[in-house]
Design a protein around this nucleic acid. Structure first.
Lengths: 343, 343
DNA sequence: CTGTTAGCGCATTCAG
DNA sequence: CTGAATGCGCTAACAG
């Protein structure tokens, strides 16, 4: 089947290519009759404008990129859903790039995006990233970027997060109020400001209650799940085992649960747990997991909305600002006692 | 900053545009010296070829599309991860389109993709889709499509699934072996062949054990979570409550757990549950969920690999065939008794 | 080994 | 209201 393009339509209708083009874009100076003729033929021949020709000509792509560490993660899946919804509503296409927490890949993706493939970028930093020259370069190309969750503080743009410091403070305070005095913290990455803030909240909450910070209780995890698991086990097996643990990210809470199970430690009798998490099954866990839940979908939507707000504009409409959404502490009490009594 | 393109490089080096182009693509008939000159200037000026100009010229996009119902779903997240890995390895870009189980959206996306925006499509059908004319149209445009999981039987192409019939049979047999005689089935969509097959496995397993199929035990769920929840509750409250339930998809298992909790029904004492599921926390649920786990990541990889195998080729290399991966029945026994004894 | 020429399909100026 | 001409940035055929 021959390509059906403007030239083809024009020939069949004895019109100029430019006329057909304008008719299809509903230009005001085309007669209604020719518009109808053009449109009906276009529909009949199943005409689809070539997006790459259009992008080349118009110097925009109607496409954005999402650059994130991983996707098999409740937070990011939900956020992508929010982004995609806004993108769809704006007629935009969404490219997705997974860095797998790898700085090299992240830099390569970002550098590629300087080619003009996308009109804007939505990004969450990889945990490995400490050098951010690639991000500065992208800015020089005038490609707008909006950060969400794992933001980059030192780039001037819109950053969408939750109230990480306050949440960390609140989580720790929650454990203290539950009677914990020896509270562990499972850290995820020194590079990420979200983790720094959550940890700062943790430390300040301890200080405010005159509980000394014990560095042995702060476990620095990384991207190796096996290693994280054994570090967590070590913590649980240490002489002075914590009576409460705050996991800064969901995946560490899951490992913690697994480790407790392996070691036959009871949650919350032996150790109380709270975690940042968007687990849908948090209330069904054994025992239920008390979480700091982020409005992930909304974060995606806000980030995308901020980006699209800047796309049409002239200057960098993305003036440096933070959009801070509020996460929710959801306490989930075990119903097991209840069930057992009934059983 | 002025655009840096081939013309610019050519001018600065007093070369023809075509020479620069060939030097950059490492053509064999360019002298090493000019190649080096070109490459060093390109690097110095931070040259990035315009992907849309290239796509327009070369009539390919180095891009594929993933069209799926949703993303906040363990199966699809994992599958996307697999797809993305293969795409990255092949230097391809990945566009993502979420249909939200909506047939209209699905058809609109597919029709848009006839424009040539992508070189191929990876797809999982929306549960609403019964009319598949859009898929036939896409085929006419010679855009290869590979289905995974929620395949479309009547389109001739590669289809990647798990052994759904056998898994359904096995799951049901498992419940029977556990002593269940009144086994419910939570169906997800009449349109989807995976559900039909799982259900057929369920029915055949019952028949083989001379257990009559009770239509009241087959609950047809949809895309409305509230409704599904109340249907599940009705099942659990029915006079002749099932003693075992097979959930055909993960989300229904979660609802089932929640309903049991609300009704203070004990799993597995009152009702045993098995489900298709890729929940990472299956073993941490209360009680642990016995699952049929699909190799979701591998499914994504296989689907992508099949698609890329066809991209370079001349004719439709996607001859009609099925790739069937094997899902795993993972039985998870409650350890609660154990824990309680120790406590 | 390198330059010239000719489009890919589209949108947009400039003429009528 | 419509047509002719131009070029977005790139690749590829054809010369030399």
């Amino acid at each position: 089947m021959d390509q059906v393009n403007l030239k083809r339509l024009a020939k069949e209708l004895n019109l100029a290519v430019s006329t057909v083009s304008r008719a299809l874009s509903d230009s005001y100076d085309i007669s209604i009759e020719t518009k109808e003729k053009v449109l009906s033929l276009a529909k009949k021949l199943n005409y689809h404008p070539n997006p790459y020709a259009r992008s080349l000509r118009k110097r925009n792509s109607n496409t954005i990129a999402i650059v994130i560490p991983e996707i098999a993660n409740n937070f990011f899946s939900l956020a992508i859903g929010g982004i995609e919804e806004i993108a769809q509503a704006n007629g935009y296409h969404v490219l997705i790039y997974l860095t797998h927490e790898n700085h090299q890949k992240e830099a390569a993706f970002i550098r590629h995006l300087m080619s003009g493939r996308v009109d804007g970028v939505l990004m969450s930093l990889s945990s490995e990233t400490d050098d951010i020259s690639h991000l500065h370069e992208l800015k020089e190309y005038n490609i707008p970027i909006v950060f969400f969750d794992r933001i980059c503080e030192s780039i001037n743009t819109v950053k969408v997060t939750t109230n990480d410091y306050e949440s960390g403070y609140q989580a720790t305070k929650h454990l203290i109020e539950k009677g914990c005095r020896e509270i562990g913290y499972l850290a995820f990455s020194k590079n990420l400001s979200i983790d720094q803030k959550r940890m700062q909240g943790y430390m300040d909450a301890l200080k405010d209650q005159n509980i000394p910070v014990n560095d042995d209780f702060i476990i620095h995890c990384g991207n190796n799940s096996e290693e994280n698991y054994s570090k967590i086990k070590s913590l649980l097996l240490s002489e002075r085992r914590p009576d409460g643990i705050f996991a800064s990210v969901e995946v560490l809470a899951i490992l913690l649960y697994e480790a407790c199970k392996e070691l036959s430690l009871r949650i919350p009798a032996d150790v109380k747990v709270i975690s940042f998490s968007n687990l849908r099954t948090a209330s069904l866990l054994d025992p239920p997991l008390t979480t700091i839940t982020q409005p992930a979908f909304e974060i995606g939507k806000q980030a995308a909305t901020a980006l699209f707000g800047a796309l049409g504009k002239t200057a960098s409409e993305l003036r440096d600002r933070k959009i801070v959404l509020t996460s929710t502490l959801i306490e989930r009490e075990s119903t097991r006692q209840l069930t057992r009594d009934k059983g």
